[in-house]
Amino acid sequence: MRLDGRAFVLPVCLIILAEIGARAGGPSDSIAPPSEVLVAFVGALADGSLLLATRDTLASAFGGLAIGGAIGLALGILLGSVGALNRLMEVTLELIRPIPSVALAPVALVALGFGYRLEIAIVAYASTWPVLLLTRSAVAGVEPRLIEVAQALRLSFPARVAKIIVPAALPRIFVAFRLAAGFALIVAVTIEIAINPLGLGAGLMTAGQALRPELMLAYLLWIGIVGFALNILLVFAQQRLFGRAALVGDIR
């Protein structure tokens, strides 16, 4: 994506309109002018509450991503390289996958209680799927001649996975993790808003319930920035590490 001056016209116009609109409407419990949002944003950043909440959210998101990613990666490699197993697991996976992650939040709440563990469990469930599905198709799509080479060399299954399959599928596996990281953040914030009193989502909810629209919008703005920065960082890393190789089979 290339940025030029034209990109900033619409946001600047919207901000100016919001400022005028909010000032004209007088004091309000539900919306605040952008200037006050900026003041609240700087205030929350200065007293550390915003950064503390960010740490909680990111820790849960990445903790869940690590667990879910590891499960998804292992299952994806297994199902992608052993065709029979893949066909046997088909119905089971098709039935579990449509269960929305938030629907499992109350189940995790009963079993684990409030806190990091609840959130990490749900994020792990949610981020297993993209990694599992994309790894499976990446592994199944490995050049058949490489598999023949592995057979000719009489490599054992672990050696074949470590030396042939994973290196060949790595660019697309990275894409899977990139998408899963985006999901992980979204799911973490969603769980915080719906149930778990922790992190950015809970901060957002609390500010809204405390009738402090300027603080609420500051949180919203910050969540947008964090999501955007994470996305940019991962796309950049992907381009640096893999170049065009990762574009094969990328899903939008």
Partner: peptide
């Protein structure tokens, strides 16, 4: 990339 649920309080 903004989580849609984040607009719920708003």
């Amino acid at each position: 990339p903004l989580p849609a649920s984040a607009v719920i309080p708003l």
